[in-house]
Design a binder for these strands. Structure first.
Lengths: 216, 216
DNA sequence: TGATACAGTAAACAATCGTTCACTGTCAAG
DNA sequence: CTTGACAGTGAACGATTGTTTACTGTATCA
């Protein structure tokens, strides 16, 4: 009699209806990861879960893996799925301001996002740039803001780009005029820039960030 | 004859003049951590470093710990200092746009920052909020921007705050008039708001982020 | 009432971890 | 040339890891 447990369809842990106890324990693991920057060992998880044997942990972890909440990498090391999708900093993403204000406690740790992950698609080809000058203030990009620039994207019309025109690096809108790419500032006091010869685009601005309260 | 190695002043690894080979190897570790979300084992580091014995790794790691580039947590597990200070996403922070454009390759992985770390001081008391409405466009906060709100900060005059006035949640400047706190929009078409009775401040806006190119 | 599945305990297992010891070559200073 | 410091090799070590097996209690359902 062969059970064939590995191939039978798994109806109980289909990623959506996970029982509350297991979810809470996943939160414990994620909390440990956030604090310690590494996955807990099975011994440490006995403390986290409040059980006394490593085998209890083993079964719980197996379920979490089966449900897709945890993974193992190629060498067998435990890997948090939330560590992949929203790596470290967990922020609750709430609704818009005018639409009422949800209670801070009702959300779980599971559905939070990381700013890095939110803004950066290609970490290896992106970099940060501090903005100076007021040529883009009308577009909401103020001096001392930071622009996240992705070098690997191909610039399109309408993008905000970092470009070198006739020797100077600037941040401008990329427009098209008479079939040729030109640059345009958002601030009307700077007009359009028609490059005399060269128009090198270093990258596309994929996001901006601003920091208030520098005391922190 | 007692060497007393532990107490003698350490002049060679004073955090600043670290030799190039060691620095490159630290970069290997950080690269592994970025890719795998965990620290490499000593066996894996033999491959990373190009050495054949674990003991060579042991000595290298000891130096890195001595220099403060790596740490061990309370249980003896290896911990990358860059994992603490700029946790996961490493972005090169370059100079301002107008000041010339540095070569992307010249910078090392060591001096990069994480956006999360840059913006968020108290991760447990912060959350993300999507902005709607145009009351703060003059301050560079556009609709569909995200505001990072810290609940634990005490609001000061001049801060941008998320506040509830007479039942509605809004984002406004916090001002003082006649010794009383009032709210003021950046957009002049909305005036000042003098709360009739209640003025509940939910948190201080410590930063804003904006995402272009939603395709990503 | 009995059968069965589930959650946890307790003890053992090989494998791998980080660490240590003994040794070899290399390079610079005296 | 000698000497010492340094970088690395290779093999061993206890400790701890993740995993497995056997067993206990408890709740559920027929």
């Amino acid at each position: 009699m062969i059970i064939n447990a590995a191939n039978k369809p798994n109806k109980k842990f289909n990623m959506s209806n996970i029982d509350k106890k297991l979810k809470k324990r996943l939160g414990c693991i994620n909390g440990f990861y956030t604090d310690s920057k590494r996955m807990p060992t099975y011994s440490e998880m006995t403390v986290l879960f409040g059980v006394k044997s490593k085998n209890a942990v083993f079964k719980i972890v197996s379920k979490l893996i089966e449900g897709g909440f945890l993974q193992k990498d190629s060498k067998g090391y435990l890997l948090s799925t939330s560590a992949i999708t929203s790596k470290v900093r967990f922020l609750k993403l709430l609704g818009s301001v005018e639409a009422g204000f949800p209670s801070p406690a009702e959300e779980e740790l599971l559905d939070s996002v990381s700013i890095d992950k939110l803004l950066i698609k290609n970490p290896n080809s992106s970099f940060l740039l501090e903005i100076s000058g007021d040529s883009m203030t009308q577009a909401g990009i103020m001096p001392k803001d930071f622009a996240i620039v992705d070098k690997s994207l191909t610039p399109k019309e309408g993008d905000i780009v970092i470009a070198r025109v006739d020797g100077d690096w600037t941040i401008k809108y990329l427009r098209k005029e008479d079939g040729k790419y030109i640059l345009e500032a958002a601030n009307p006091k700077y007009g359009r820039i028609k490059p005399k010869q060269e128009l090198t685009v270093a990258g596309v601005v994929v996001g901006t960030i601003r920091k208030y309260r520098q005391c922190g």
